[in-house]
Design a binder for these strands. Structure first.
Lengths: 341, 341
DNA sequence: CTGTTAGCGCGTTCAG
DNA sequence: CTGAACGCGCTAACAG
């Protein structure tokens, strides 16, 4: 059942017209809610359409209209923690209307990406959102793409493109300002993989917030990877070397959980003895740790939605703008920095 | 730049034909690698196409062919832990060929799902994969869909549909058999949310494996939710009540991590004193715990790939089959059940 | 080997 | 208010 080529041609508008006893053109008008059709005629047509389970052929329509009502989502690797919310935000913004989303996963491979790009253009998508897995700049798709393109999360390396990316500097700053506001002054930083722009930017922002308060990090910030293991090891080193530390800014929630673990092992209570703040607000990690983890949220879903809106507007003829826009992040306070009853 | 309606009509095949100095039909044949074209002519056409950056219009093509080379992926909620691998598997299987994927997220809302379904049919997708977020049966889309439909993860409640879902019973059995093989005999179970079929099925499988060995669970299996918090609380209760327990089968990796945490707090060493096995093989959790977590992997990516292949075959005219297929799961052994050096 | 012709399903003029 | 005719971009028959 439900096989494609059982010869049961899908019903077309002319089938509907015939059943309703009108011409093809009249049926079209009736279906599309045009005014110049007699109410009775319209009713007959709509009934016929209902009876035949008529579904308009979007392709035939697109052929005429020059628009398909589809958008391409080109991701570099679905398996990221950051793809999903962005994807959801975009799907959300589009899904509400009449737009459908083509999902293409390039698996981090430039060849595949090129392949997918051609496929998308061949399907005449009205616009494209390119989602990268890091905030490091990525190669531009080029300027000769016949539809609007927006880069999300990973900015394009070409300033003529429009890119939307979270403001990691503001995030780093926000984290440190929160620790300062909690009365902490002997703050250390455990960073992630230093080859990531995100790691460097968060550190940057944090440093400038400290400087504004006339302070510096206790000890040199430690770089490693983004894992819980690293968080545990780094925290052990750091707390051994500088027991006076009263707060740690971890560059990711995973690292932060490792820090909390080690703190418990060393008999230091969080947050009284040691405040810990993470980054990403990954709920799974943040809400399951003891105590729950204060973190910086990059508003990725909103970022996805914004990207979609930009594409929308550009499709409607608006100029799309260019350059890298750094979108605001927000602080989510939980028990790892502020004691809870 | 890159605006849609700057009047710069995308180049069509007849543009190519004109530049190459041949007829439309000849250009078409040349582009599609048909044999009955002179090599020199073909070269001219291909060059012209290259020069004009010609991209064939897949819609116009589809209109003729009756096939679009697109497939719909209808998910009930993207935000699940299980969606992503399935989605990746499917995208993988399709992406290799000429097929593109429409992603639709119904956000758990039946109305939205209906809406998306209509959109997909309107776009004349060649097939549909329905991905649910739990292994509990979900409402069928019905039998009168003009294209092949496969249900992945969440099976359809109509036996005439084809559903692919992981074999939770086999998983539960596998978990317990592994614990038995490790020499454990005083095994307890901490389950998740009992309203989930997955929770009940895993318990079922585990029980029958125990029965085969002439054993029973120590204490009544405890039900709660799927969280780390619950795992911690349940483990405390269980170990307090039955200190003789030498192994715990946790119904999810999150629960298992909670169990390991509590074990540490109570001074019981894992795995020597207490073996712990989880479920789902969520790498993030499994590889970051101390010790790393043995778990059951449901092979979701492969499940997604299989679903895609089924749809493929059905598009090519094969009968699609029906009923619920339970796909095999596998055991991933790590340090929480087997001591590591 | 190449060109001409006829649609695929639909929306949109423009006469009736 | 309704219908006939044209064309969106392309491929599949047929002629030449």
């Amino acid at each position: 059942m439900a096989s494609n080529d059982t010869g049961v041609r899908t019903t077309t508008l002319s089938d509907v017209a015939r059943l309703a006893g009108v011409s093809l053109a009249t049926a079209s008008k009736a279906m599309n809610g045009r005014t110049d059709v007699a109410p009775a005629t319209r009713r007959r047509v709509l009934e016929a359409a209902e009876d035949l389970a008529f579904t308009p052929n979007a392709m035939a329509r697109g052929l005429l209209a020059g628009r398909t009502g589809t958008v391409g989502l080109l991701t570099s690797d679905l398996d990221g923690r950051f793809m999903l919310p962005i994807l959801m935000g975009a799907e959300d913004a589009f899904g509400a209307g009449q737009v459908n989303v083509f999902l293409c996963d390039a698996r981090g491979d430039a060849i595949r990406e090129q392949h997918h790009l051609r496929a998308l253009l061949s399907r005449r998508v009205d616009g494209i959102i390119v989602v990268g897995r890091q905030t490091d700049p990525r190669p531009s798709l080029g300027q000769d793409i016949p539809v609007p393109v927006v880069y999300a999360y990973a900015p394009s390396d070409d300033d003529r493109d429009l890119s939307l990316t979270p403001d990691n500097r503001a995030g780093g700053r926000l984290a440190v300002e929160h620790l300062l506001a909690c009365g902490r002054t002997r703050i250390a930083h455990i960073s992630g993989d230093p080859t990531y722009a995100a790691a460097r930017e968060r550190l940057d922002g944090a440093r400038s917030a400290l400087a504004d308060a006339g302070l510096e990090f206790v000890g040199e910030p430690l770089s490693g990877d983004w894992s819980e293991h690293w968080g545990r090891d780094a925290a052990a080193t750091l707390l051994g070397r500088h027991p006076e530390i009263d707060a740690v800014f971890a560059a990711s929630d995973q690292i932060a959980r490792g820090v909390i673990d080690t703190a418990r092992d060393l008999g230091r209570s969080v947050p009284d003895d040691l405040a810990v703040i993470g980054y990403d607000n990954w709920e799974l990690l943040a809400t399951n740790s003891r105590p729950e983890l204060t973190s910086i949220d990059a508003n990725l879903q909103q970022l996805g939605r914004r990207a979609a809106q930009r594409v929308f507007e550009a499709i409607d003829g608006a100029e799309m703008g260019e350059g890298v826009r750094h979108l605001p992040v927000r602080l989510v306070i939980r028990g790892s920095t502020v004691p809870r009853r």
